[in-house]
Amino acid sequence: MTGFVLTPRGAFDARVDLTGALPGASDLERLSIGYGFRRVALGDLFSVSGSGADRLTIAGGSPLLDRVAAGLTSGELVVDGDVGAELAKGATGGSVVVNGSAGAYAASELAGAHVTISGDVGERLGAAGDGARRGLSSGTVVVGGSAGLRAGERQRGGVIVVKGDVAEGAATDLIAGTFAVGGALRGLAGRGMKRGTLLLRSAEGLSSGFADAGEHDLVMLRVLVRRSEALAELFGEGLTRARRFAGDLNVAGKGEALIVSA
């Protein structure tokens, strides 16, 4: 089954709030969505084709498409192209694939879905939104490119994988969970980390509250790469050893950064 396909009728000249446009939504064409400071029917902006409740494809993305897959509970949502802010925010299930880049707060407060973004993401990947105490709490997000400021801020669980570089303040106030970076850190990473694990290629860019705890053969690493395809892909299935840095000791944190040499 191909599922529904949304094809933009033209370029957008204001932000589009796609809240509610999910696989399985009934009467997509008439779904009321935000367009700038008006509400319009989804059918005004997109032509809707195909059928099937399990899958929804947006054939033609745009950085103006906000809240794509926000609150997704099941099914698959695929975007050919870029998306805007709050991709898959609070999604509890299903999977999201973006063949392009995403804006700020991608996978923010994710709670169980699997999100893959082939390109870059903006600031606060997997972070807590306004007023929320916790960021991504379960599920997985994999970013093929690089991530913006404060990726993983207040992450509470789950797995974040960024294959490229991560801007300043990664894992700020991270509470728990696993955050893996294939590229470089740009500084101030892990500030305020309470618990949780950073899996890194280099300790360069960690904040000053981390202290070296030596090289270790960790059985846990073997389990991680066997249970997480994304981590296996990044670090190889033979992963067994890492250098452990503990932090953020300034906040009496019990988190760790595990440096996996290439």
Binding site: G192, N250, V251
Partner: peptide, 10 residues
């Protein structure tokens, strides 16, 4: 400043 206040808080 962030680190100093972190320490103070701890």
């Amino acid at each position: 400043l962030v680190d100093a206040l972190s320490q103070l808080s701890a």
